[in-house]
């Protein structure tokens, strides 16, 4: 298990970050090239003011009609995504690793706060799981891919919470947590999670089309 831990925080971490960063950069560049090649008659209408205005509306909870009419999803989605970013970036344990191995350090969230936020993510994953099972219109469109992605995110945060609370063998749980997290990073550019990369552009594009071509708003 020690050997696996060393592998996970060493070479695999490098690999995961490299695949995540290079993979994301590649996907964004490739998509840009494809858009310029095949979607020129749409790229021509891109308008940053409209895109930014629409993005501002959509990152405001209950700002858009879609959010207002799905209040449960709205609350959970916002809580989920905010925590999903805050915890990995500002958790003491993560910073300590960067600090110990690379000498990089930045301010951390208090542990109890980070713990609570992680539990929020796990709870949000459970809510999404429940929706996929129990809400017919979501069940209808759920495929294996969706279960896997949800499981990956859920497992990463669940093992993190368990490791923090020292439930189960800590070395095992922490190693599992690191491996899940790395798998999630690698999955971002290559799965449904790529909405993290492309979501801003698809939103921005449709906002441009609605704003500058159609003179209407898209929220």
């Amino acid at each position: 298990m020690h050997a696996l831990f060393n592998l996970a925080v060493g070479p695999l971490a490098w690999l995961a970050f490299a695949l995540f960063i290079l993979g994301s950069a590649y996907r964004l560049m490739a998509m840009r090239a494809l858009a310029l090649k095949k979607d020129a008659s749409f790229v021509a209408y891109i308008s940053w003011p409209h895109a930014l205005k629409s993005l501002a509306h959509w990152i405001t909870p209950f700002g858009a009609l879609g959010w207002r009419e799905n209040p449960g999803v709205t609350v959970v989605t916002f809580a989920f995504h905010i925590c999903l970013f805050l915890v990995p970036l500002f958790l003491m344990g993560h910073i300590a690793l960067f600090d110990a191995f690379h000498g990089w350090s930045w301010p951390a969230l208090p542990d109890t706060v980070a713990d609570t936020l992680s539990i929020v993510v796990v709870a949000a994953c459970l809510y999404f799981l429940w929706r996929r099972i129990a809400v017919p219109e979501v069940r209808f469109i759920t495929r294996t891919h969706d279960w896997l992605v949800l499981a990956l995110v859920g497992a990463t945060f669940l093992t993190g919470v368990l490791a923090y609370h020292r439930i189960g063998d800590n070395l095992f749980m922490t190693t599992l947590h690191i491996l899940c997290g790395e798998a999630m990073l690698v999955a971002i550019p290559f799965t449904r999670l790529s909405h993290m990369l492309f979501g801003f552009f698809s939103r921005g594009y449709i906002a441009s089309e609605f704003g500058s071509v159609r003179h209407a708003k898209d929220w």
Binding site: A35, K38, V138, D146, R192, S202
Partner: peptide, 27 residues
């Protein structure tokens, strides 16, 4: 021949949240 980045992005990134259900008069 006719599809590009838009179709690819839409096919890949839809997270299947089902929020659009309430938008549609048919639904």
């Amino acid at each position: 021949g006719e599809c590009g980045a838009r179709m690819k992005t839409y096919m890949e990134t839809c997270v299947r949240c089902g929020m659009c259900a309430k938008a549609c008069h048919y639904y």
